Simulated assay, not measured.
Amino acid sequence: MTVRAILESKGRYIHTVEADARLAVAVKTLAERRIGAVLVMNGARLEGILSERDVVRVLAERGAAMLDAPVGTVMTRDVMTCRQDDTVGQIMERMTAGKFRHLPVMEQDRVVGLISIGDIVKSRLTEYEHEQQALHDYIKSA
């Protein structure tokens, strides 16, 4: 299965914030949307990603006053990305090695989606269910 197939199933909508937005605004978006990360964009250009882990880390290190800081001071700037043609296996390896749970999907320097570890798990479970049903049907017809 490819990233493209996952995006076609889940949709391509992404939640974004600007680098100068206050961290409190981004945290509210994460909570209200029940998501684990937002992309930090400058127009159509990806500047970074802000994840729950980034928020927890900065609050633990610097305290609640950081909620008034701009997202750009907290976000992860060196963002690993993937492409639509990448396989689930490839991105699972990348996420495991980098110890992160979200990958922006890029095509020709443009963000076209966001894949989470939850999306991958869901796609793998769906694959396994289809395989199990096919085996069941095969055994039944034999």
Score class of each variant (00 low, 15 high):
Cys82Arg: 08
Arg77Glu: 13
Glu127Phe: 05
Ala69Met: 04
Thr76Leu: 07
Ala31Gln: 13
Met66Asn: 00
Ile117Pro: 01
Ser116Tyr: 03
Ala64His: 02
Ile91Lys: 02
Ala64Ile: 14
Leu135Asp: 08
Arg45Glu: 13
Arg53Asn: 03
Met75Trp: 02
Ala24His: 07
Lys28Pro: 00
Ala21Thr: 13
His136Cys: 06
Arg4Met: 05
Pro70Val: 02
Met80Ala: 14
Glu107Val: 09
His15Phe: 12
Val17Ser: 01
Pro104Ala: 11
Val79Ala: 04
Val58Ile: 15
Ile6Glu: 08
Val17Arg: 06
Arg34Phe: 02
Gln133His: 11
Ala19His: 13
Ile49Lys: 03
Met75Gly: 04
Lys122Asp: 15
Lys99Tyr: 13
Arg12Ile: 10
His130Pro: 00
Val71Lys: 04
Met41Arg: 10
Thr16Arg: 11
Asp109Ser: 14
Asn42Leu: 03
Ile117Phe: 11
Ala64Glu: 14
Glu18Arg: 15
Arg124Gln: 11
Gln84Thr: 12
Ala31Tyr: 08
Arg33Ser: 08
Glu107Gly: 01
Pro70Cys: 06
Thr96Lys: 13
Leu30Trp: 06
Ala24Phe: 09
Arg83Ser: 14
Val17Thr: 03
Leu103Tyr: 10
Ala64Cys: 00
Val25Leu: 10
Lys10Tyr: 01
Glu131Cys: 04
Ala21Asn: 14
Leu125Asp: 06
Glu61Ser: 05
Met92Glu: 12
Glu129Gly: 01
Ile49Thr: 03
Ile14Glu: 04
Leu114Trp: 05
Leu23Phe: 04
Leu50Asp: 01
Thr126Gln: 15
Val25Asp: 15
Glu61Tyr: 01
Met92Cys: 13
Ile6Asp: 06
Thr81Arg: 10
Arg62Ser: 09
Ala134Trp: 07
Val3Ser: 04
Val56Phe: 12
Gly11Ala: 05
Leu114Ala: 05
Arg110Ser: 10
Val3Gln: 03
Arg77Leu: 04
Asp68Pro: 00
Ser141Leu: 12
Thr29Asp: 04
Leu46Ala: 13
Gly63Lys: 08
Met80Trp: 05
Ile6Val: 15
Val79Cys: 07
